[in-house]
Design a protein around this nucleic acid. Structure first.
Length: 266
DNA sequence: ATGACACCTCTCAGGTGA
């Protein structure tokens, strides 16, 4: 089974790119982030005609996640348990940043869009850390219930776990994505039992999944590795290969993120 | 070996992204 994650930066603006990507690589399950739409706003016919089912979760023009599968889509769950609201005060809402379903032969796949954090002294940064803790707790709960669980956490984690995951640590000095608390929150998810399925085959430096639209970051190879597929032990053991589809970042109308693809023998 | 921000909406300005 071939699974992928991709921050699409508006599904409505790039539905045809998604269909072409699924066809080009024969992807079975795709986790999308930043669909930037309510489900009712989406025109899904091209995906349905290509043989896929879609489960989308979006509340407004911000955030939004979806799962696209041609190997089943059962027991869909929206939101993470115990996730903080934004803002973290009365009147705050649970944003559309998580959706999961069971695909294929009992694989629970999550599509996750971790909050950006904005600036280190911004309330959004504390929200990001608590959101990651809610993810760790849910991941730990699943493996405590069944250590052999087939589970994969896919998405835009908005954390560069290592210095080599950004094009310049000098550039990111004092900015989010590279701070120790964010990295510790990411490591806590890994230490709960979810291994990076791509890094062993594609170590850095210079391996990225995101390039800013501005300042010629992509042709200058100035990117960040912030999109990950983290697998439970059963999924890690079944992983047979992976790649980052850099070609998809090229040309007019590209998302600023590239898809990340993993093959699992499940 | 790639291309000079781009998406959204309470739209021509502001919020968000990283």
């Amino acid at each position: 089974m071939r699974i992928a994650t991709w921050n699409i930066n508006s599904l409505r603006a790039r539905t045809e790119r998604v269909v072409a990507f699924l066809d080009r690589h024969q992807v079975d399950v795709l986790a999308l982030q930043e669909i930037k739409a309510k489900p009712a706003q989406l025109v899904l016919d091209p995906l349905l005609e290509a043989g896929y089912e879609v489960a989308a979760h979006g509340l407004n023009q911000w955030n939004g996640v979806a799962l696209i599968s041609r190997v089943g889509l059962a027991d869909v769950r929206r939101e993470l348990p115990a996730v903080p609201t934004w803002p973290e005060e009365p009147g705050g809402v649970v944003e559309a940043r998580a959706i999961s379903a069971v695909v294929g032969d009992g694989l629970r796949i999550w599509s996750l869009y971790v909050p950006n954090g904005r600036e280190i002294d911004h309330p959004h940064y504390a929200y990001k850390l608590r959101w990651l803790e809610a993810l760790r707790a849910e991941g730990a709960r699943e493996l405590a219930q069944d250590p052999a669980a087939r589970a994969v956490l896919c998405g835009d984690f908005n954390v560069a776990p290592q210095d080599e995951d950004v094009w310049s640590m000098e550039f990111f000095e004092g900015r989010t994505h590279v701070t120790e608390p964010e990295r510790a929150a990411f490591r806590a998810v890994v230490e709960a039992g979810y291994a990076d399925l791509v890094r062993p085959e594609h170590p850095g430096p210079g391996v990225y999944t995101y390039w800013d639209y501005q300042a010629l970051r992509f042709p200058k190879k100035e990117g960040m590795r912030i999109d990950f597929l983290l697998g439970s032990p059963a999924v890690q053991a079944a992983t047979t290969g992976s790649f980052i589809d850099r070609e998809e970042r090229k040309g007019k109308g590209a998302s600023d993120h590239a898809p990340v693809v993993v093959d699992v023998d499940l």
